[in-house]
């Protein structure tokens, strides 16, 4: 059963009472919240996700609620709790849905070391998975959103989960996080892009999330085989330009973008070595999304 099949009131009831269980890639997540924007965000962006069953094992139980005391009414805030643990300071309540996304990122990055986790957008076309590791400002999410709007499959806009057993990439096709000008750029780039509420003045500036394509969500269970590692760099006025990377320097650059390379130690090094040896690795500067799309599709 999908989230979209719940009525508005049933969705909100579950959020308030027993928790809304969602199957999000490899993670069953149960969310409790009585804050309106959280329900709105889920309705707008998570419709295609499958609900968990009553007896299912839940990996992450999280909640988004108002802190107790005065701040419930006076400049209301929201707290993210991971099963009773509060990893963050409270945020203004208007950012509650974005905080769900950030909080879930935190849960995965800190509790899923069965994967080598790389800070990257991950997309796929014709069976080839492309990893776009991203330092902030590189434009990875924008490029990822653009390609996904044009038919690429979304595996994740935030993290590549590389299985330490098989080297495959496991999808977590959650909404794509867009910031500042990227929101307008994507809305103009594709009229099919569905955006959630736009929230201003967050720690990351203005943010909004793009709904993941239904087909990507439906393939949540299907891991992919990595074939390309692209380090994107948005450069004003640049022609699309691919610069091949040696395996050694690609390995170092991916390691820098990994959340848990040091946790995995030798195993991390081996998994990363395997990954890099299977992939063609490039640095990629571009300005136009259309040209970038064309260039990347020519590699597949």
């Amino acid at each position: 059963m999908k989230l979209s099949s719940l009525t508005r009131s049933e969705l909100r009831r579950r959020l308030k009472e027993e928790g809304l269980g969602l199957n999000i890639g490899p993670f069953n997540t149960s969310l409790t919240s009585s804050i309106g924007v959280v329900g709105d965000g889920l309705e707008q962006l998570y419709g295609a996700f499958t609900l968990t069953g009553d007896a299912d094992f839940i990996d992450f139980r999280v909640s988004l609620n108002s802190p107790s005391g005065l701040r419930r009414w006076f400049r209301p805030q929201v707290n993210f709790s991971f099963d009773g643990f509060f990893p963050f300071k409270p945020l203004p309540q208007i950012q509650a849905f974005a905080m769900f996304e950030w909080g879930l990122n935190w849960c995965i990055a800190n509790n899923a070391h069965q994967y080598l986790i790389i800070h990257a957008a991950v997309i796929e076309r014709n069976g080839v998975v492309c990893i776009l590791p991203g330092t902030p400002g590189s434009g990875k999410s924008t490029l990822c959103a653009a390609l996904v709007c044009k038919g690429w499959r979304l595996l994740s806009d935030e993290m590549a989960l590389v299985s330490t057993q098989t080297g495959e990439i496991f999808p977590v096709p959650r909404p794509v996080s867009l910031k500042n000008q990227s929101i307008d750029i994507i809305q103009h780039y594709s009229f099919d892009a569905v955006m959630g509420d736009v929230v201003m003045d967050t720690a990351k500036g203005t943010v909004s999330h793009m709904r993941p394509p239904q087909s990507s969500v439906e393939q949540s269970e299907k891991p992919g085989t990595p074939g390309l590692i692209i380090f994107p760099k948005y450069t004003a006025g640049a022609e699309p330009n691919l610069i091949p990377l040696t395996q050694a320097s690609a390995l170092m650059k991916v390691a820098e973008n990994s959340f848990n390379y040091s946790v995995l130690g030798l195993q991390g090094f081996e998994v990363l070595g395997e990954l890099v040896s299977k992939c063609a690795c490039y640095e990629f500067s571009y300005q136009s999304l259309d040209e970038a799309k064309e260039t990347l599709e020519s590699l597949i």
Binding site: N28, N111, A112, H113
Partner: peptide
Amino acid sequence: LPQRMQNHLQSAQAVAEANHR
């Protein structure tokens, strides 16, 4: 144990090993 639990245990073991290193 359920596969999901095995995943969490594997993850936790990696953390302990990193701590020990």
